[in-house]
Design a binder for these strands. Structure first.
Length: 271
DNA sequence: CTTTGCACCTGTTGGC
DNA sequence: TGCCAACAGGTGCAAA
């Protein structure tokens, strides 16, 4: 379940365990992720020390002296720390073997995730170069969103989910943020007032921030030996609540589809 | 240029 | 109970 909050939670959980630690190699059981996992991955990371772990959008960057490991969790990916002799399950595709008889294990049933090696400065990489605003950066404001909407007429929900505009807002939090901002998901970005853009920017930040705090409780499970354990159930205001009363006005929450994805909203208080 | 729909893949769920 | 279609938290890419 990787949206930005989950990825950030993963990053925070990994930092104390990985930074400063050396990698012994990598075991790739199935290289067929979104892009083929490089065959020389193990040689690339062997003997390298983890310098830092960063996040850009939903991408994780594990920094080494000689390069960076770019990790994406796709729809169903998960990273966990395991004992390095822990028997792999069907979807445990990659182990990054660490000093101290542990491994960082990538599990991903649907294999929409990715693990790539970037030899140069990571920022210049194709996949990262054209990414949009980070929701927690100071540049992420209503005015910046409004500026980027100029000349466009897409529905605001799809605009929000466009990673070249804003990163990190997935299908759940797009619906949630629009509900908080009281904006109808089908509304064209050409017809949003400056005030509404401000509300939206604030709502995106607030929604993601709250979810990260909630994700903090999965942090402990994550850092645990087996990496499994129960997941925190985020309380959503509209997502998955079709037919249930709006928590603000009591009207029935509606579900529609936009671009092959479900959208939830309150028809009464979102305009 | 913007917008739309497809593709990738496995697992779960709900209706018949 | 079993079967099958629809759907699931992402996103790059081709085509319109």
């Amino acid at each position: 379940m990787p949206e930005l909050p989950e990825v950030e939670t993963t990053r925070r959980g990994l930092v104390p365990h990985l930074v400063g630690r050396r990698v012994r190699g990598a075991v790739v059981r199935n290289p067929n992720l979104r892009w083929p996992v490089p065959g020389d991955l193990s040689g690339r990371v062997e003997g390298e020390e983890v310098l830092d772990i960063r996040r850009r959008g939903k991408y994780l960057l594990i920094d080494f002296r000689r390069g960076h490991l770019l990790v994406h969790l796709g729809m169903s990916g998960r990273l966990s720390l395991v004992a390095d002799d822990a028997p792999p399950n069907r979807h445990d595709h990659i182990d990054l073997q660490l000093e101290g008889h542990q491994a960082l294990r990538l599990t991903d049933p649907r294999r929409f995730g990715a693990m790539l090696w970037i030899p140069e400065a990571a920022e210049g990489h194709q996949l990262l170069a054209s990414l949009g605003l980070e929701p927690f950066a100071p540049e992420f404001t209503g005015a910046a969103l409004r500026e980027r909407a100029k000349g466009r007429r897409v529905a605001v929900k799809q605009f929000l989910m466009n990673g070249r505009i804003v990163v990190g807002v997935g299908n759940i939090y797009a619906s949630e943020a629009l509900w908080h901002a009281k904006i109808h998901p089908l509304r064209s970005v050409a017809r949003i007032s400056p005030e509404a853009w401000n509300r939206l920017a604030a709502a995106v930040r607030q929604t993601l921030k709250r979810a990260i705090s909630a994700g903090g409780s999965t942090l402990r499970d994550f850092a645990g030996i087996d990496g499994r354990a129960g997941r925190y159930q985020q309380r959503h205001d509209v997502y998955g609540r079709e037919g249930k009363p709006c928590r603000r006005c009591g009207a029935k929450i509606r579900a529609i589809r936009q671009g092959q994805r479900s959208t939830f909203f309150c028809p009464k208080c979102q305009k």
